[in-house]
Amino acid sequence: MKKWVLLLLVVVYGLFFQIDITNADFQLQKPLLTREDILSVKVNGLYGRSRLFRENDGYEEVIIYKIINWINTLNLSVGPTEFELNKTSTLPNLRINMKNGNVSVIEPAYNCLSSSKTKICTLAEGEVIYTWNSKKVRLQSRELFDWLLVGWKYESVGASKDELLEETLYSRYYPYFDKTYSNFIMCPRIDKIERINGDTRRHIVHVSALNYSAHHGDIPYDRIHVTLSDTPENGVKIIKVGIEKDLSKKESAGQCRREN
């Protein structure tokens, strides 16, 4: 009898071990998504609320990149990928629209228990179901799980008045830059403005921006720092230019007002 029990345990262990190998093979197939593939991301929340984030919107693009990064760093989780709930239930989901016409879907994962004729399903904290090409996999991500349920509601809509003003001023000064620095157009900031001898018409302006060529995330951003004078008699004159190389993710996020 003991031999049969031992044999059964070995078979069961082998089955689970085989599943783990399959999951490990899937983990190696990363990244799951690339930025160049994405057209838009749409969140469908509870009670009919939704929001669309578009790849060609310079402001929403950053949010899409954050989501892609979460997806590409997910870890596999053990549990069912199919569940049955009341058909009248409204479940939040994230639809990722690809440029080739395909659609991937992310939904919260559930754990269900059956008792007699009753099935009770509850949210699996920090876990989601990812569906693509008729395939489903259960993954772990506290950040993506929280964002899917509530976080998307608090993403800023468009740029603030101050940010738009800084972009306008930077656009005025940008044509005076040497062509060598033409790539520095991302997340412009007016860091400081000083009056010259207290005159309200004459100023020293300190501006900065990131290089656009690094926006795919493959390499760190560089940041330009420009000091210039702006006066009625002489117009815009460049005083000093400096390049800050290889910014950290925290520094570049701060430049683009994406500290969180």
Rank of each mutant, 00 (worst) to 15 (best):
K2W: 13
W4G: 07
L9A: 02
L9R: 04
L9E: 04
V12M: 07
I21P: 08
T22R: 15
A24R: 08
A24Q: 11
L28P: 00
L28D: 13
Q29A: 07
T34K: 09
R35H: 12
E36S: 12
D37C: 03
L39D: 14
L39Q: 14
S40C: 01
V43E: 08
V43D: 02
V43L: 08
N44D: 15
G45V: 00
L46S: 07
L46G: 07
Y47M: 14
F53I: 04
Y59E: 11
E61A: 14
I64K: 04
N69D: 13
I71F: 01
I71C: 10
N72K: 00
N72Y: 02
T73R: 09
L76N: 14
S77R: 07
S77D: 14
T81L: 05
K87R: 11
T88D: 05
L91R: 10
L91C: 06
L94G: 03
I96H: 03
N97A: 10
S115N: 14
C121Q: 03
L123C: 02
E127S: 14
E127M: 12
I129T: 06
Y130G: 05
K135D: 06
V137T: 13
R138D: 12
R138C: 13
R138V: 12
L139S: 09
S141F: 03
E143Q: 11
L149D: 00
K153G: 07
Y154G: 08
Y154D: 15
E155V: 05
S160V: 01
S160I: 01
D162L: 11
L164W: 04
L165D: 14
E167A: 11
T168I: 06
T168N: 15
L169R: 12
R172G: 03
Y173Q: 01
K179T: 10
T180A: 08
I185C: 01
I185T: 13
I185S: 10
M186G: 07
I190L: 01
K192L: 07
R195G: 04
N197P: 00
N197G: 00
N197V: 10
T200K: 15
R202M: 10
H203E: 08
H203A: 13
H206I: 00
H206N: 13
S208Q: 03
A209V: 07
L210H: 02
N211R: 13
Y212W: 10
H215P: 01
H215F: 15
H216F: 13
H216N: 12
V226L: 03
T227L: 08
L228N: 08
P232D: 09
P232S: 05
K237R: 09
I238V: 07
G242P: 00
K245I: 04
S248F: 15
S248P: 00
R258W: 02
